[in-house]
Design a protein around this nucleic acid. Structure first.
Lengths: 203, 203
DNA sequence: TGTACATCAGTGAACGCGCGTTCACTGATGTAC
DNA sequence: TGTACATCAGTGAACGCGCGTTCACTGATGTAC
């Protein structure tokens, strides 16, 4: 394996192209992300990008999958780190805070993840990472109607907050501390006691 | 004014192009909306579209402004139609239901509205329509911290629900009745009594 | 330790395409007198 | 009622650009013997 500059083989081109794509999206949005721009930023010809990912959608699929994996990690850590264990209401709250924080600190990943028309949404890697998050959210693989509505409510409120925040739609009056804002907003959520949480296991 | 086909002057080209753009976005997403495609669908040359809107961003600005105007109308009607008047908790709930319903029935408008990078977000028409919605939401032009957090919570939950629904991210188990789902989800929201609502007047 | 060979990773050039924008133009409409 | 003229609305052609994709190629690496 070779990491020196100037050599014919890059050595880590695949992850380098993903990182380049993320940077471009952060700067210019997904519309500004092209195979050519990513290759340029990674210092290779654009044909090399096509070689590794097959197509533009292929590269964006890799970005989305990377995002889902990172998100699953962030949420899992938040749940496991909650003061009273994974079955407590605190676990749900900390997960929500982590969800919004992830979106704000990884805007490019977040933006791509929730625009499925940009990538191959049937990618197995991606689906696997999504499944982890989903299980954490509903507290079970097979939630009952109660769990489902509660999970959707919680997901909606944090997803909406993250989206509106990233779009600059929220009043300046809220300040810059996204964790604090999330806690303030989440305080308006009324969730039932969780059942069946024993299904949640660390990844 | 001339509405016959085949004449040199279209007569209603501006609104026709906006409608064409909306249809294209509904079919192919904003990425598929080009000045040329909109002109093609309206049956004119693409230079005519450039003449009326100046640029692609100009046309999308008109779409977004149209969306904000329709949204303001829908929310105002919902609030005014609430059983116990505009100061009741029901008003807030009905507004939330109307918000999600608007998004689901006008996905193209909704998608553009919440992608400010696509259009001129300082457009006066657009800002005016946005202001109407904002006032309804927070129950005041100058909300206190309490009102603000409650408004952001309510906005977040309906916006998140609408976005996730449109993306196909929610479980099929929820069914197809978006109004019912919204009510179920909104039931998990705990809002304080509204104050200062007397500032809300019909538009 | 050496050599032959297969495979992998990236190059460089070329392709056709649709795009936004610009421009001189002309047909249609409205208005002043 | 007519006529001259200004303005508006749309045409058609042209432009340069960056894009994704394809392809024959070559340099580098890994492996079998």
């Amino acid at each position: 394996m070779n990491t020196s500059r100037g050599s014919y083989h890059h050595g880590h081109l695949r992850p380098a192209l993903i990182a380049a794509a993320v940077e471009i999206i952060a700067d210019a949005g997904p519309a500004g992300m092209t195979l050519r721009a990513a290759a340029r930023r990674a210092g290779v010809t654009h044909a090399a990008a096509a070689y590794h990912f097959g197509s533009k959608a292929g590269l964006l699929t890799a970005v989305a999958a990377d995002g889902y994996r990172r998100q699953a990690t962030a949420l899992t850590q938040a749940v496991l780190g909650a003061p009273n264990g994974i079955e407590s209401g605190r676990a749900m709250l900390e997960m929500g805070v982590a969800y919004v924080r992830f979106a704000v600190t990884h805007p490019a990943h977040f933006e791509v993840m929730y625009r499925p028309e940009l990538y191959h949404s049937d990618d197995p890697d991606l689906l696997a990472a999504k499944a982890v998050t989903r299980k954490l959210l509903y507290g079970s693989e097979r939630p009952d109607e109660q769990q489902l509505a509660a999970g959707v409510a919680a997901w909606s409120i944090v997803h909406g907050l993250a989206t509106l925040w990233l779009n600059g739609d929220l009043p300046d009056q809220l300040g810059n501390d996204i964790d604090a804002v999330t806690r303030q907003v989440a305080a308006h959520l009324r969730l039932p006691r969780r059942r069946g949480s024993s299904g949640v296991t660390p990844a």
